Computed example of a mutant assay.
Amino acid sequence: MRRPLRCAGAAALCAALLGLSCAAGAADVKSGLKIAFLPKQINNPYEVIADDGGMAGIKEFNGIGKVVGPSDAGASSQVQYINTLITQKQDAIVIAANDANAVVPYLKKAMSQGIKVVTFDSDTAPEGRQLFVNQANAESIGRGQIQLVSKLMGGEGEFAILSATPNATNQNTWIKWMQDELKKPEYSKLKLVKIAYGNDDDQKSFVETQGLLQAYPNLKAIVAPTSVGIAAAARYISTSSSKGKVAVTGLGTPNQMRAFVKNGTVKAFQLWDPGQLGYLAAFAAANLASGTITGKEGESFEAGKLGKRTIGPKGEIILGPPTTFDASNIDNFNF
């Protein structure tokens, strides 16, 4: 059975996605490296942008890149792909994990055979990889979500979280920090009534939004820290009587959310550039596979147009802080 696969595109992708010339920052990287990206879901719009960014980076340093992955976000759905990539003797696997633990034994097997493993966007347990490329500091993302929704709600009322899957590492980490932020006195009038799960599926997220509005008639906001969830929630509310009454915010791409900002359904939301996240992960994997870094804290490497990056504690590399998008700036972004 053929697996879903996307290969590195033309050089034009480099320029279109990141405005890159295809040479900088690749001097220390071996040519011809085979690097495979394994997203949570092959058809997730956010993941597609991130993976395309990775392919653009691989194109720059003359690597051989491809994207393979499942069509669902189940905890063990990535295992068969890891096994295949081991058989193919890839130089590196870059994975956004659907589960922190389910894939670890298989990634450890990959590393034992000399394949470098980099997680990005959604981490595994530390023993399952050598580096983790994080979009932003997890604590700042979580706390920032509460700060933003509090502002949108006027500092009081009921709100719900519409997450991805119950076992999504990144979602759960952000939610943990959201709950911690809620303990501060300034949020004493905010009440988190429910954490719902749309499984990063558009239709399920749409139905979950409907269910939240029915179950909590006094709901003032939905926070969806997932690009699939925020778009589905906004789509439902945009054509319902809740438009203008229930705020929708969270993490989404500007292109995905632009229409909902323009029609007043969404006032503000946040994200980083997922294309740059994938691009940074590609360079991290290439430097690891080339031996210019080993994954130790304090080591640095050149990441093309993103410049010099340094490995932090526990093998973490951070892309940068998220941007808040609203009607005043959303047309300045195209991803």
Rank of each mutant, 00 (worst) to 15 (best):
T239Q: 14
K245Y: 05
N287S: 08
F260D: 02
F269E: 03
L277G: 07
E297Y: 14
G295E: 15
T265G: 07
Y279C: 06
G304K: 04
Q270L: 10
R258N: 08
V248Y: 04
T253D: 09
G291T: 09
G278H: 01
R235A: 10
E297V: 15
G275T: 09
L251M: 14
V246D: 00
A286Y: 04
E302P: 08
A233V: 05
G275K: 01
W272A: 01
T294L: 09
Q276D: 15
I222F: 14
Q256H: 03
Y236M: 00
T310R: 13
R235P: 02
A282V: 10
T253P: 02
A232C: 10
Q276F: 10
G278W: 03
K220L: 08
G250A: 04
T310P: 11
A231V: 08
N263T: 05
V266E: 01
G307H: 13
K308M: 13
F260K: 02
L251V: 14
G291I: 12
G307A: 14
P225L: 04
S290A: 10
R258D: 08
I230E: 00
M257S: 08
E299Y: 07
K308Y: 13
K262V: 13
L280M: 13
T265H: 03
A224Q: 02
S242Y: 10
K305D: 14
T226D: 15
S227L: 05
A233H: 00
K267H: 05
I230A: 03
V246S: 00
E299L: 04
K245G: 06
A233Q: 06
T294C: 12
V246A: 00
R258C: 07
Q276I: 08
Q270P: 12
A233I: 04
A289G: 09
E302L: 13
S242R: 08
L271M: 14
G275F: 08
L288Q: 03
F301Q: 10
F260I: 03
A233D: 03
A286D: 00
A303T: 10
P274L: 10
